[in-house]
Design a binder for these strands. Structure first.
Lengths: 342, 342
DNA sequence: TTGTACGCGTTATCAA
DNA sequence: TTGATAACGCGTACAA
């Protein structure tokens, strides 16, 4: 492929002049500029970013690692990040880790070798992550997305998971529920799930209610009703369940209805994330909305600030409780025998 | 950051030897190799891919462009592509076009400047796409994903959309339905939607039934029930509806039920794509499954073959009809007055 | 087995 | 306003 030198020759100028035609056209005599551009057109010249990157020591590429793209919460965030990045002249290298620390490690190493200007990572466990330990010794700016800011050296973009789930719990309590449970994916896979459970516990205890242990599902997007069934039914059974993510909630609702139970009649269900789809379901999903589009924007803005050498301290993003049809007031028939006295 | 030369100096060898320690360790005396690696470790040396890319004129990067990541069908395909690519030592630059030809153009230009080794594109309209016209003059291998292989120069990975929708239509006919409609997103946005509608028309006509025009929804992931309601109800109303994608089907089911109609009692609904989520809903989604994981694998394999200089002719991927609960047999009460005679 | 030397396509620093 | 020239970090003939 044609390079600057061949363009320069055809235009009858030096390579330096040809280069300037692209980088600072105003410093050229119009006629010269025109000649160079014409030569470039004739030769089908296209600037080589790899060479630019080598020379300027900046790639204008960001490395993004998410656990999975099967969960719309990550896909929607990625979509927003891509738009924000491109608007700022950056490209995204995208990878998925599957929550696997080994893959996390390999991916980050690969991206460092690629000399990305910055990293936006969502790791499984921010507080004992080998990747983050390693990155602490590197100079490449790194931003955590969704992970709580446990690691003081890395800024983090996300909602306050604990407060958000506490809000959701209080909402159910205000609807009259007393026996409220919580389900999640494999616990060890996510520090966020743990924080959310803490928020649930706090809100329950603050209301004088008994928080239950997290009921673990084998996968973080699909419910095994058998693990939950024992806790349902009877006068002592749960009347409401919080889920650590929307997909789990949707799956739960499906399983419940397929087993002949009604939602929210027999069980109120709340999700977490606020994926777009949840609005369109019937019953529509009651959930805690993470502002995913803003996530992407803020994540990119913060990372670019880091790259510029600033030390941004992003605040937790605001979450919003979206009332849907999947969680409702406690039916009179299921009120607890003992009255509730706050 | 440390470079090969500094490593070489510390190890007491020439730069060439240090380079070989990484590219062909077997050609070094073990002791020499050890010394180099030790020096690299001490200095925190990390090979610079940008320099490698410039020198070898190969980036081992693939450019991927999809219309949107909000639709799980693209996100799930991307996930599969990323895994396949990384397994083969390639990275992915990911972009979204929003079906906007202007953005498509800018994105592809950007990726060519980045010297990606290959492109995997999903364009809005493969047959009058400015991007593809331009790419025809370029030497960078390009693969279409999901787009029908209208452009003879570009291999294409996808299901046979026409046959797939015809299968779905025949399925509904076999269930006893006669008045079957089809809804889709904004028509002009997608050549795939058009092919699917043709498949529907073919199957209807082959059964002696009257195909209807595609009922256009304002967005391709959300139903406006008002546009469909006139065609429902009454003894002449539709008894089944095909949707051009799963999100539309899910949204339709939600709106129908919210309006007091039952699915499939009042209306059978079929989706298209087979996103994972559809299995977990209640009613679970009847749909045509595109093998998304295989999509990713095959797309990457085909593109890599193209890059190697081969001329692969990928066959259409097999689609599978997944029977769910959202489409059922025509209720006796809604049988048409005139009998059906094939 | 190891070293020398050139080139990949830019940007940037000086001079002219 | 334009030109000559040295990096940027690496791969790889070719020579030793």
């Amino acid at each position: 492929m044609a390079n600057l030198l061949s363009v320069a020759k055809l235009a009858g100028v030096s390579r330096a002049t040809a280069a300037r035609a692209f980088s600072s056209p105003e410093s050229l005599r119009p006629e010269t500029h025109r000649r160079v551009m014409e030569a470039a057109r004739v030769l089908g010249f296209r600037p080589n970013k790899v060479a630019q990157q080598l020379r300027t020591r900046a790639t204008r590429m960001l490395g993004v690692m998410v656990p999975s793209l099967d969960n719309p919460v990550f896909a929607e965030q990625l979509q927003a990040m891509e738009e924000a990045a491109r608007a700022a002249g950056y490209s995204l290298i995208v990878t998925t880790s599957g929550y696997d620390p080994g893959r996390e490690e390999a991916i980050v190493e690969e991206m460092l070798r690629q000399r990305v200007d910055g990293l936006a990572l969502t790791v499984a466990e921010a507080d004992h992550s080998a990747v983050l330990v390693k990155l602490r010794r590197e100079s490449t700016p790194c931003l955590l997305v969704h992970n709580p800011p446990v690691a003081p050296c890395f800024p983090s973009v996300g909602v306050d998971n604990r407060a958000a789930m506490a809000d959701a719990t209080r909402y159910l309590i205000a609807q009259g529920h007393r026996r409220i449970g919580m389900i999640g994916g494999p616990l060890l896979q996510s520090d966020r799930a743990r924080l959310r459970h803490e928020g649930y516990r706090e809100a329950m205890e603050a209301a004088g209610l008994t928080p239950l242990a997290l009921i673990e599902m084998p996968r973080h997007t699909q419910v095994a009703l058998s693990r939950l069934a024992p806790a349902l039914g009877g006068t002592e059974g749960l009347t409401a369940v919080l889920c650590t993510n929307d997909l789990l909630a949707i799956s739960l609702i499906g399983e419940l209805r397929r087993s002949g139970r009604s939602v929210p009649g027999d069980l109120s269900v709340m999700g977490f994330d606020g994926i777009e789809l949840g609005r369109h379901l019937y019953p529509s999903l009651s959930t805690v909305v993470q502002p995913r589009a803003e996530f992407g924007r803020v994540a990119v803005d913060t990372l670019l600030a880091l790259i510029r050498g600033a030390t941004p301290q992003p605040l937790p993003l605001p979450h919003v409780l979206r009332e849907g049809e999947s969680a409702g007031a406690l039916p009179a028939s299921r009120q607890a025998p003992e009255p509730y006295d706050p």
